[in-house]
């Protein structure tokens, strides 16, 4: 049995990667997650300029998953690059790839961000066009229309030699259409899904709990949505898919792989299973593949696609 996975020519020791926005704020944290068994790690999305935080509450556990509206707080790509460089040096020794996540308010901003983080030589760049938590600040996420999604993809592709993953939003009518558009524009891989827009209201306060009012839902509550998105994308595109959304166990990861994922992103499971969650999920996946008679994740990839 091997868990080794290849995504865009980058070798991952196992397909379980840390999703962006979870624990990816510091080099030391990325390295810590890698040491605990992750196959790859994604840094928190960085933008051309420093962004301050939303007031709290920004991250809550509501029982069936998490909801967050951190508001893409980050130090800006110029300050992020040294963090990535420090992380990369250590991750390279561990043989764990680094995915640098970026976002911006404009197409040109995305290109600039890609170019800047590219200097830190991450193995892949994740283009986050789908954060649901900054709508009224940044305008409509680029991931909501095929045209705008493709524009960003093409601009980033031009700005860097590093393979790019475009992260899509579930908050759309037809994710496959957006996926096909970004593939056509040059995306080397697609990540799906970002968090699902949602709200919690405190009935005693009579108002939304998140300071941002709305936020992104992640965790077990969204897993079937994510599985369907990956399934649809797998039928619409040929590039590798990073399946993300509510994966907490090896069985969940295998489900994602059977839907068509090459890599599986894990984030909120850190809440229920600790920082070691990724390594634990990889071990469970390994046992499960063996039990079911597969010799590698590649063997199981996409097998859920039945021709009716």
């Amino acid at each position: 049995m091997t868990l080794q996975s290849d995504c865009c020519g980058v070798y991952f020791p196992n397909p379980i990667v840390l999703a962006s926005g979870i624990l990816g704020t510091e080099a030391g944290l990325l390295v810590r997650v890698a040491r605990s068994g992750a196959g790859g790690v994604t840094s928190k999305s960085a933008s051309p300029r420093h962004r301050t935080r939303h007031p709290n509450p920004t991250v809550l556990d509501w029982g069936y998953g998490l909801i967050n509206a951190v508001g893409l707080a980050n130090p800006g790509v110029a300050a992020e690059a040294p963090i990535l460089r420090a992380a990369k040096a250590e991750l390279q020794r561990l043989g764990v790839p680094l995915i640098a996540s970026i976002f911006a308010e404009t197409v040109a901003g995305f290109a600039f961000a890609a170019e800047t983080v590219g200097r830190a030589a991450p193995d892949l760049i994740e283009v986050n066009i789908s954060c649901p938590n900054v709508g009224h600040e940044l305008g409509k996420p680029f991931a909501l229309e095929p045209e705008s999604a493709a524009q960003v993809t093409a601009a980033v592709k031009k700005a860097t030699e590093i393979p790019i993953i475009v992260k899509l939003s579930p908050n759309v009518t037809d994710i496959a259409e957006i996926g096909a558009a970004v593939e056509m524009a040059g995306a080397d891989a697609i990540a799906a899904i970002n968090s699902v827009a949602g709200m919690l209201i405190d009935i005693h306060a009579g108002r939304p709990i998140l300071a941002n009012l709305e936020g992104g839902i992640s965790g077990p509550a969204i897993r079937p949505l994510a599985v369907l998105a990956v399934y649809k994308l797998y039928e619409a595109v040929n590039v590798p898919i990073i399946g993300i959304g509510g994966v907490s166990t090896g069985a969940d990861a295998l489900e994602m792989i059977m839907a068509g994922a090459t890599l599986v992103g894990v984030g909120s499971a850190v809440r229920s299973r600790g920082l070691e969650a990724l390594g634990t999920i990889a071990t469970e996946l390994d046992a499960l593949l063996a039990e079911l008679g597969y010799t590698s994740p590649d063997d199981a990839r996409g097998i859920a696609h039945v021709t009716s």
Binding site: L23, G24, N56
Partner: peptide, 20 residues
Amino acid sequence: YIRCGFGVCGSCAVGKDGWL
């Protein structure tokens, strides 16, 4: 600086080793 309070968001990392 604490956000989530349960070890997920990474906002409160102290020092170089990712101690939360």
